[in-house]
Every structure is written in structure tokens, then in C-alpha cells.
Simulated assay, not measured.
Amino acid sequence: MDQTCRLDIAVLCKPILAIVSVVYRPVTVDELVSFVDIPAGASNDESLAEIIGLSVKDFLLVEAAPKTFPSGIDDVHYSIFSRSLRVVSWKLKCNIYGLGAPGFPIDQVTPPDPDPLAAGQYSCVYWIHHLCDYNPSKKVDNDFQDDGLIDAFRR
């Protein structure tokens, strides 16, 4: 996988980004592969999806970073972190699915439709990762102080 991803990233990523930018709906890996040349040795759907995902991510983080992150990647991490805490603070509540008793088996839970957690699933899991990847020394922010965003969420 490492050798495949070390190919000239731009050669693989530019066509992928171009295609996903103009398709009229999200496409499957199989559909995407039919539109671009994928390196030899990447045979199954899982490895293709990983190559595509890693290659596009590498391209955006390395080759296109000045255009992708004009204010720096720290600002994007901070934005995701702060918005995530706002989302989970607003969305989460005790017994949000209305389960009958504590300890209800997770495999028997059917989320309601619409799922009140749908928009916040990523935020619930990854807000702390974005906080860790953010470099707060570049910016003084009240979110890190008593009565700030983190303290309010924790309480």
C-alpha cells in the first residue's frame, strides 16, 4: 500500500478530484474506477477505496495545501472542533432514543427516523481528535478557559 501511495500523487488525484467534482451524484468505487486509470496491483474494491482515499488526502495535505488551507490546517481543525462541540452540546440529551431501561442491548436499538444523532455522529467521536491536532498556541481563545466551550460541554 505504501508503495502504491508513493506514486506521483497528483497523477492519480487530479483525475479523481476532477471526476468527483463534476458527477451528478456520489459514485461508487467501481463507478469511479471506470472513469480513471488505477495503478496496477490495486485489485480489490477495498484496496482501491483506500488508495483513492489516502491519495486524495495526501494530495490535499501536501500538493494542494496552500490552496486547500489558505489560513493553515490548524484553523480547519479548530473550526471542526468548535463546531463539533456546539453540535453535540445542542443535540445530546439523556436517553435521546427513548430506550426503556439502562443497559438496553445495543444490537436491539433501532434509531428513530429521522435519527437525532445523524448529523452529530462524526462530532461525537472525533471532536477531541481535532482539538488534539489544533495548535492553540497560535491563537488565544476563550474556549479553553473556565466557562469556555470545553468547560461548558464538560459540565
Rank of each mutant, 00 (worst) to 15 (best):
L48R: 15
F69N: 01
R83W: 04
G120Y: 02
P114Q: 02
G41V: 08
A40N: 11
L48T: 12
L12W: 10
T110V: 15
P102E: 07
Y24V: 11
L60E: 11
F35A: 11
G41F: 06
I106T: 13
K91H: 08
A152Q: 15
I128D: 04
D113L: 13
N135L: 12
D113G: 02
D113M: 10
V36Y: 00
A65R: 00
L12K: 04
V62G: 13
S21G: 15
P111G: 09
R155W: 03
I19N: 03
A10T: 13
I96N: 12
L54H: 12
G148Q: 05
F69T: 00
F153I: 08
P70Q: 01
D58T: 11
A49R: 07
E31W: 10
V22Y: 07
D8H: 10
I80A: 10
V22C: 03
I16A: 01
K138V: 12
K93A: 14
S71D: 14
L99Y: 09
L85A: 11
A152W: 06
G98P: 05
V20R: 15
L117S: 04
K138G: 14
A65G: 00
D8C: 07
G148F: 08
L149Q: 03
V88K: 06
F144I: 03
T110D: 05
P66L: 11
Q145G: 02
V87F: 06
G120I: 01
V11M: 11
Q145S: 11
D75S: 13
P114W: 02
V88A: 04
D74E: 08
L61K: 11
D2W: 11
L131M: 12
R25L: 02
I106L: 15
Q121M: 13
V125W: 12
P70M: 03
V140K: 14
V109Y: 00
P66K: 03
I73T: 10
V140C: 06
L61F: 04
L149V: 00
P26W: 01
P102G: 02
D113W: 06
P114K: 06
I16N: 00
S55R: 13
F104H: 14
H130M: 01
N142M: 07
D147K: 02
P39H: 10
K139A: 05
D151Q: 00
C124I: 15
A119Q: 10
I150C: 04
C5F: 08
P66F: 05
H77V: 01
K57P: 02
I9A: 14
V27N: 02
L92E: 04
D37F: 04
L32T: 09
L7F: 08
G120D: 00
S137I: 13
S71I: 05
I96F: 12
R154W: 01
